[in-house]
Structure formats: C-alpha cells, structure tokens
Design a protein around this nucleic acid. Structure first.
Length: 491
RNA sequence: GCGGUCAUCGUAUAGUCUGGUCUAAUACGUUAGCUUGCCAAGUUGAUAACUCGGGUUCAAAUCCCGGUGACCGCACCA
C-alpha cells in the first residue's frame, strides 16, 4: 500500500515560494535604503491577483448587478475632515527625551493613573495630565517630550504651494464622495452596491510579515447603500439561506449554523447583513478557504472602528494565527451625513417616493492577505511533489505546453498550439529539461493542466493533457483542447 | 519607534569566534549541450553572493562604528 504523506506548509515556506517563483518581492530591493512595507507583484503574482479580482467581480459584483468605480488615490483634505480620519486616525504620542522610546499618551496615562483616559483629548490636556502625574519614561526614567500627533495617513503636497491632501487610507471614501454624481447619472435604486478595487496607503509604525501588513496595499471594497427602513426585503437572501457560517461571538463562543438559522436565533441582526456575510463565505469557499478554517468574529463595542455600529471580521486560521481578511461594517449614515455636512451638498435620494439618506453596509477585503491565505491553504507537499492546488481559474497560468523532445518538428508543432491558445488562455511554453521536471515546475506554481506533444502527435493530430491534482493523462485531438480547458474552468 | 538576535550566489548552508592559500566552497535551482523520451534520472560545461556606508590594519566576508532590512518580544494595527 502506498502511503502518501501530505505536509502542511508554513509562513516561511510560502515566503520562499513567493520569492523564488516571482510572485512577490520587496520593492526597491536592490537599494539599501528600501523601506519596509512595500512589495512588488511579479509576473505570477500579477496573474494570480488579476484572477482573484476577476472572481470577485464575477461572484459578487456582477452577480448582484453592482457598479464599479476606480477612484483617485489622492484625495483632498476635506474628504478626511469629513470622514473623521484626520481626527481619529492620528494617535497622541510622547517621546522620551533620552532613549527615544515612543508611547501612546492616552494609554500611558490610563495605565499609570488607573483612570480611563479618552483618546479624544487635546494635546494640552494630555501634557497637563503627564505633568501632574509626573510620568517618566518607562524604560530609562528620563523626562518625556510634549504630546505630538502621529497620523497614519501619508500627506501629499499638491502643486507648487504644496496644498494639503492625502493618500487615501481606505478606498471607500471615493465611493462616498462620488455618490452624488453616481446617484444622478446611474439611475440607481436601493439597495445598490458600489465596488472599487485599488490601492490604499497607511503609514504603519512597524510593518511586518510581508503581504500581511503593508504600507501600500490592495483593497477590494463594496459599499452597499440601503434604506434603513427597509432592510429585510431582500429577494436574493434565498440564495444564501442554507450557507453555513461560523460565528465567533463576543462571549468567545463559536456558533455554526446556516444564515437562515443565524437570523432566526438573533445571532445576526437581520437577513440583509446575513446575506452579505453569506456572499463573503461562498466567495472564499469557492476560492479555496475551507469552512473549518474560517469564521466571522463579531467585534465588541470597544473594538470597532469609529464609524461602525456592527462589525464582523471574516478571519482565516493560518500558520501565523487568525488573520483578518474582510471587515464587514455597518457604517450606517455616518459617512454620507458627514460628507453632506462638510460639503454642504444634499446627498439624500428618493426611494419609493421616500427621501432618504442611505445607510451603508461595507464589505472591505484585504486583497494581499487573501492571496497569501489562499496560497497557504493550497500549498502542500504530496510525497516529494510540491503542489499548489489553486482552485480552477486562480492559477497564474491556465495551461502549459511542452514538446516532449526538441527533435523533429515537435517544437514548431507545439508552438502552433501555444499560439492558438495564448490569446484565450494564460499559457506558458517550455521546452527545456526532462518532461517530469517540467510537470513538477508547473505543479509548484499551480498550473492545473499541461499539454504534451509527442512523436505521435503530428501524425495523429492529438496531444496528451496531464492534470495537476491527479497526475492523470488523457489523449485528445488538437481540435478538442479548447473544449477540455473550458470544461475544466467552467466546472 | 524601543530591546534582543541576525544579514554570504535565485534558495539553503560552510567560512566569521582565532583577520592572511577566500582567486569565497557545497547542494539544490537556473542555463547550454549530450543522452533520455511521459513524471525533479545521468553526464559535461556555464551562471551567480560577502546588506550599504565609514573606520582599524601591511592585509577585512572575518574586528569596530553607523545606516537599512529580516526575525522574536514590547508598543502600534484606523
């Protein structure tokens, strides 16, 4: 009996795969002053990311007839005055005058005085408290500087005068500030999802773990605008009512049940929210994360972002612990009312004769982290074979084409097949090394099918298709290749 | 940002303590042949590295100082 040992890979193995195969690598790598937290996507990473986003478009955006925008990454200061990021996104910090240790002023005062200190005080109020409590550096006991602000947003000077503006710390603000025009030009009806995929920027104090904590990263966000008086009338709910979710509640219990049961038992507030959580679960299951390793964590009051009334973090269990992939937040009318106030524009729209300021439910996906998690769960060692079992449609290459030998007319015949496929499928041609080696190389980067042309191929006009997961081989006529590929990818 | 540990071909290691045959080695990888012809075989070549800057010294991968980065811990994580 053959025993196949399947070994699970950890963070270091994934990192090595990324670097060696050109998925991702550090930005500005050849310069010694390359800052941490910035990563470039290599050729395989780009293909993989594009396919992941295409799956997001197909299975969420197009499925629900959402509309998509692609907004500017630099936004005006007023956007962030309204959004609250200028106030809430900056931490009050103090610095030791001797050893340069940095502390959060509010937490330090809370720890030492024992009283809860708000993070919303003015700098002068913090200075006052530090002085009256005679707080010194925790490490070297020397005096502390006065309070200053560390804002996680990158500021950008515009034009010769350097007018203040910022790189967006989340993609969704574009959606809110574009809402007025979209509502007037796109004939939208509530509920309507507005989607955006793009870069966000946060000046993390200490980025770590490559793709898991970046200073410049991809988000795929959906803001669902809805009428708060009308949240339970969603026809589509039936498509997820039997979808099973793991809910991790604030009492540290795990509740596993269908969306329908979770609403009926009051674990989830309504069908509207349950529907979108179901969509997220279905999307990730389809793309390779198993239910057993995923959960929605209900965030307790003190853990939620400043704009949210309900928050559910979709998390996945990886070799580095539970990792947040998607933040699902009920932002209510926080954003639109703030933008309405600061901009002075009326952002209400008509919904069945009723004038409403829509509420917003947000599904904010961290793309880089999602890609990492999918690779970690898909990558394993099958005997001595390294195998990346990505789901159909996610692999960097759809198909690889190999002439068995470089003799006779095999290469030119193979090139013809390659040229015939490469516009419709992400194809890869390789003629060097033994055939086994070529198969293994594709296994490791997840290519699900390889086509081999042998000495009989020219005469019979047929090829061998070899499958990644089973290693099975089938013989098909050249005219059948595209059908076989479509059969696999539409499965 | 702080503290600890660390940094050598694409990757994993040797060499560093005790400076000098280090003209930096080995394996895997990559690559060009030969061979083979459906699962990382064999064989002959080739490829490619001392993190960056400064200092000590007759001589630095090796010792000293600083920068940058990585890992672990603290803090941070909208």
């Amino acid at each position: 009996m053959l025993i196949i040992i399947i070994l699970i890979m950890n963070y270091d193995d994934i990192q090595k795969l990324f670097l060696e195969k050109g998925f991702f690598f550090p930005s500005s790598e050849i310069y010694s002053d390359a800052p941490a937290g910035f990563w470039d996507y290599g050729p395989l990473g780009v293909n993989f990311k594009n396919k992941f986003i295409e799956s997001w478009r197909k299975n969420i955006v197009r499925r629900d007839s959402m509309i998509e925008i692609d907004g500017s990454q630099i936004l005006s200061k007023n956007v962030f005055v309204a959004s609250g990021h200028l106030d809430n996104f900056s931490d009050p910090i103090v610095r030791c005058n001797e050893c340069n240790s940095v502390y959060r002023a509010d937490r330090m005062i809370t720890d030492i005085s024992g009283d809860m200190i708000s993070e919303k005080l003015s700098d002068a109020e913090y200075d006052e408290k530090i002085k009256s409590l005679d707080i010194k550096c925790l490490k070297c006991k020397n005096s502390l500087s006065s309070v200053s602000r560390f804002n996680m947003m990158y500021d950008v000077g515009i034009g010769p005068k350097g007018d203040a503006s910022y790189l967006r710390p989340e993609t969704c603000q574009n959606i809110f500030v574009d809402f007025l025009r979209l509502s007037k030009t796109m004939r939208i009806k509530l509920p309507i999802g507005i989607a955006q995929f793009g870069k966000s920027f946060r000046n993390e104090i200490s980025p770590r773990q490559s793709l898991l904590r970046l200073r410049e990263f991809y988000q795929a966000e959906i803001e669902v605008f809805y009428n708060p008086n009308n949240v339970d009338v969603l026809d589509e709910f039936s498509t997820v009512s039997d979808c099973i979710l793991n809910i991790h509640n604030s009492d540290d219990e795990i509740i596993t049940a269908t969306c329908n049961e979770l609403v009926n038992r009051g674990v989830l507030p309504n069908k509207f929210i349950a529907y979108y959580l179901g969509l997220v679960q279905q999307f990730y299951t389809r793309n390779g994360l198993s239910l057993e390793k995923t959960r929605f964590r209900i965030l307790p009051d003190d853990d939620r972002a400043f704009y949210a009334t309900h928050s559910f973090d979709f998390e996945v269990l990886t070799s580095v612990g539970w990792l947040e992939l998607v933040a699902c937040n009920n932002r209510t009318d926080y954003d639109l009312s703030r933008h309405q106030k600061i901009s002075g524009k009326d952002l209400q729209i008509l919904d069945n004769e009723e004038k409403v300021l829509p509420h917003v439910f947000e599904i904010s996906m961290g793309v880089d982290r999602s890609l990492y998690s999918i690779v970690e769960e898909s990558y394993h060692k099958d005997g001595d074979r390294l195998l990346l079992s990505l789901k159909p449609g996610l692999s960097p290459f759809d198909v690889a084409i190999f002439p068995l030998s470089n003799k006779n007319d095999l290469p030119s015949f193979s090139k013809q097949i390659f040229n015939d496929l490469k516009l419709d499928f992400q194809s890869f041609y390789d003629s060097s090394g033994s055939i086994g080696r070529r198969y293994r190389r594709q296994d490791e980067i997840g290519t699900p099918m390889c086509i081999t042309i042998d000495f009989d191929s020219i005469e019979n006009n047929d090829v061998t298709i070899r499958y990644r997961d089973s290693m099975d081989q089938i013989r098909v006529p050249v005219s059948e290749i595209k059908n076989k590929l479509l059969e696999y990818y539409n499965n």
